[in-house]
Design a protein around this nucleic acid. Sequence first.
DNA 1: TAAATTTTTTAGTCTAATCTAAATTTAATA
DNA 2: TATTAAATTTAGATTAGACTAAAAAATTTA
Lengths: 217, 217
Amino acid sequence: MQTLSTEDYLKAIYHASQSASGTVATTSIANKIGAKPSSVTDMFKKLSEQKLVKYEKYQGVSLTNEGVKTALRIVRKHRLWESFLVSHLNFNWDEVHQVAEQLEHIQSEKLTNELERFLDYPTHDPHGDPIPNRALFMKSYNKILLAELPLNKEGVCVGVKDNSSDFLRYLDRRQIGIGTPLMILHREDFDQSLHIQAGNSTLMITQKTAENIYIKP
Amino acid sequence: MQTLSTEDYLKAIYHASQSASGTVATTSIANKIGAKPSSVTDMFKKLSEQKLVKYEKYQGVSLTNEGVKTALRIVRKHRLWESFLVSHLNFNWDEVHQVAEQLEHIQSEKLTNELERFLDYPTHDPHGDPIPNRALFMKSYNKILLAELPLNKEGVCVGVKDNSSDFLRYLDRRQIGIGTPLMILHREDFDQSLHIQAGNSTLMITQKTAENIYIKP
DNA sequence: TAAATTTTTTAGTCTAATCTAAATTTAATA
DNA sequence: TATTAAATTTAGATTAGACTAAAAAATTTA
């Protein structure tokens, strides 16, 4: 069984290796975890002994198959709990992360599987991220960034790239959430700002915002 | 904030001081926690510094008001989670303890209070133990042991003293649970065994069993 | 490519929670 | 009450995970 801390490392390595390809650097994990690089090196060695990562000095780490599985089990729990918090406990999508960070470490297969059943086998969490099923398989639909959507083509918001509270609350205030229909009406060459149709209202957003919203065309 | 371990100690001290009166001995906590007495002494000192217990060398400990509050917050979470596991996640009353031991350490007032609301403010957990409300107040009805019930007087099972899986499964097999009407039909002087009416069936139980079932007359 | 900079690792230290073994205090018993 | 037994505490060691500071390797830049 993993300690709480090794689980945090595995998850961080998993997420890091999703965005960047190849091996994951010591510093990038240090930043995510909030630890010093020297501590990360120590942990890399430990995880390597347990055959959860492949580690070579100065070359960063990559997850082994077993490491990926362990990470996905944590991601699965995290996203199931987030779904539960939003759907049944009146949590807002910007409030769930911190609590799910704790709940993801609870060890009980029965609990996880029954929670999944209780939620009726959800495929995506409140931020639109896919939830691994019992076999740790997950299907992410092919989504694009709102910024990449052609003019006057309609899409539906299916997720966000930035999960920070600030960004999520910003979207709430503009009434943009999962399922909201979105369309770009006009691109301002001057400052890259965008006029968009979001549901029934039209509004202006920045390029940066458009690069953090995922849509399905 | 308490570490996971200090919470375990506070809960153990709380439970110990419920059954016995006066101060709680080092060894009794060592046994509950599964630690050596020397470790317990160390922790008593730490808790004492934090003003959560009153501790005098060789004299055992007792919880301060703040210590009781902290313990009750954990008991509250433990029992709410147990209730949730049984009522919504198909857990049996003998399966919940180990998982609730983990869940009780999750730190989120909102989570606890919303869980309570979701469960519709339950007053007792699946074993009949009272659940402290948000103000940490709990009302336990005046219950007696089945062993103390006079002959041919009817009572209703409201809880158990022994929460072990073995005992709970034993009760399951005999179809005795919270709410089951119980009546003693005959006491065997020879071996203290009891013939009882439990719901629609009559059966024989030992004195020991009768001393671990709580009933309301 | 040599020098400068950045990244990573090593070596040694710290803290919380545990342990063992020995010493001390309290409680039980003869 | 003196002795023995049991409970408790102290002293010193261990482990996991983290840290700082210094050394070593890799990368970038001139």
